[in-house]
């Protein structure tokens, strides 16, 4: 307080000067038209500049919200765009020979059209697909999934609205396939390399196989009807154990460009399941006895 009083005593003439000068300028701007016009023009310019700067600053601060809103709008527009593109593609799509054949085969089976919503390619080779149909649409575990290029995979799990598909390009996938025009069959596996190359193992050594022959589903399981295209033989080789052939297959399904698929149902699956369960039960009882 004492310091404040000393300060005021020391600089009282400056304070008085400031007050009186302000009073003089107030008089000047109040009673002189030229000066008041110039002063108010200048203050208006300054006020406008400050307002502009303030507005710019406020707009800059609000950019985060604007950005969030734009991102949201962008996402919605992208989704709409994708949906519209899908519809256009469906309208323009002309099925090729494989698709026509698959369509003919599947005509006898209940089918559920679906779209791939997630196509996960993992480093550990446990790849998965997610489709937008679930138990509410009739999808169940163990159903086969085919696409325009042929076999895609098998339903692993199904929720109400989505289903998880184990594709051919999965480390544990094994689908029973045969060489078209014959009854030699084997199991289709994938080694984690190219997504277009799989292997048909356990084909008998005496089987007559040539490069370019078509491979299709054998129908020995309830998953796929027989005759669904899988791919073409790219090379014929021996299995590591030397007891059978190992065919290198060029898959018909391109997993990096997969959108529309079809889930294939089986009208008689419940019957075959019942039979299997019954057999297993009987064998279990006999084993115990």
């Amino acid at each position: 307080m004492r310091n404040l009083i000393l300060f005021l005593q020391r600089y009282v003439h400056f304070i008085l000067f400031a007050v009186l000068e302000l009073a003089s300028l107030a008089l000047l701007f109040s009673f002189n038209r030229l000066q008041s016009t110039a002063f108010f023009s200048a203050t208006n310019s300054v006020a406008a500049a400050i307002n502009r700067m303030w507005g710019d600053a406020a707009a800059y601060v609000a950019l985060r919200d604007v950005n969030t809103r734009l991102e949201h709008e962008n996402t919605l527009l992208k989704m709409q765009n994708d949906a519209l593109r899908g519809l256009i593609d469906e309208q323009r799509h002309t099925p090729d020979a494989t698709e026509k054949r698959i369509g003919e085969i599947l005509g006898k089976y209940p089918v559920i059209p679906a779209k791939v919503t997630s196509n996960e390619q993992r480093a550990d080779r446990f790849n998965h697909l997610v489709i937008d149909r679930g138990t509410d649409d009739g999808v169940a575990d163990g159903m086969g999934v085919v696409g325009g290029g042929g076999v895609v995979g098998v339903i692993s799990e199904a929720s109400a609205h989505y289903s998880l598909v184990i594709p051919v390009t999965h480390k544990k996938s094994a689908i029973s396939c045969r060489i078209r025009g014959s009854d030699w069959f084997g199991y289709l596996t994938w080694d984690g390399g190219s997504k277009l190359i799989a292997y048909l193992d356990e084909v008998p050594r005496y089987a007559v196989v040539e490069r370019g022959m078509a491979i299709e589903t054998s129908g020995y399981s309830d998953v796929f009807p027989p005759g669904i295209f899988v791919g073409n033989v790219l090379a014929v080789g021996s299995a590591p154990d030397g007891q059978s052939l190992r065919l290198t297959i060029h898959l018909g399904t391109d997993y990096s460009n997969l959108r529309n698929v079809t889930v294939v149902g089986n009208l008689h699956r419940s019957e075959t399941d019942t039979l299997r369960n019954h057999t297993a039960f009987v064998e279990g009882v006999l084993e115990k006895n």
């Binding site: 000068e21 003089s24 008089l27 000047l28 109040s30 002189n32 000066q35």
Partner: peptide
């Protein structure tokens, strides 16, 4: 200023001169 018709001009200049 009161008699010269320039309110504020003389007061401001003379105040500055006084400082």
């Amino acid at each position: 200023d009161l008699f010269t018709g320039t309110p504020g001009v003389g007061a401001a200049s003379c105040c500055a001169t006084g400082l």
